[in-house]
Amino acid sequence: MKSAFVWLTVACVWGATLYAIARTQSFVRQQGAALAVQATPDYTGVLTRAENLEPLSVERMHGQLRHLGNRVRLEWKVGPRMAVLEWQTTSPTTGFIPDSEPVIVRALQANTPPQVGMRIEIVRMTYPLGYYCVIRDSGGNVVDVWELLWNT
């Protein structure tokens, strides 16, 4: 009887761990978003265009990143429309995703759609192709946190 209980425990712990491992990615993303809000940004900017961003997708969207002088534009298709998020950089963009590269965008914390004039702070992940985009209103409150991956 005791032996059966022991092996049942082993089976339960293995099952629980495998389930936990399957959920670890989303768990880490949520943690990453919370840490990114507190982290020192690697790149900063002020939003100059924010179009067709409603509703914000928590699914991964494939798009493109463009460098236009001192502006960076992120665009992706949402159905028949093109969602655009553009910002004027307020820090050097050295080492950021190059021009015309494909990217993957996903909202991790989507409170309200970004608006022109809001600040964007970009924090690098340890993963060399990944970034967190923290969007703040004029009061410094966090409006959204997005995940941006260079889909190279």
């Binding site: 761990t17 670890t24 982290a39 340890t126």
Partner: peptide, 29 residues
């Protein structure tokens, strides 16, 4: 054997959690 089989998932989860920390902001790896 049963004891080791119980500890293995603890280490396994730790290893996977560590690997996943690649997706945390740099500095938290």
């Amino acid at each position: 054997v049963a004891g080791l089989l119980l500890l293995a998932p603890v280490w396994l989860f730790g290893a996977w959690f560590t690997l996943s920390s690649m997706f945390l902001p740099s500095g938290y790896f």
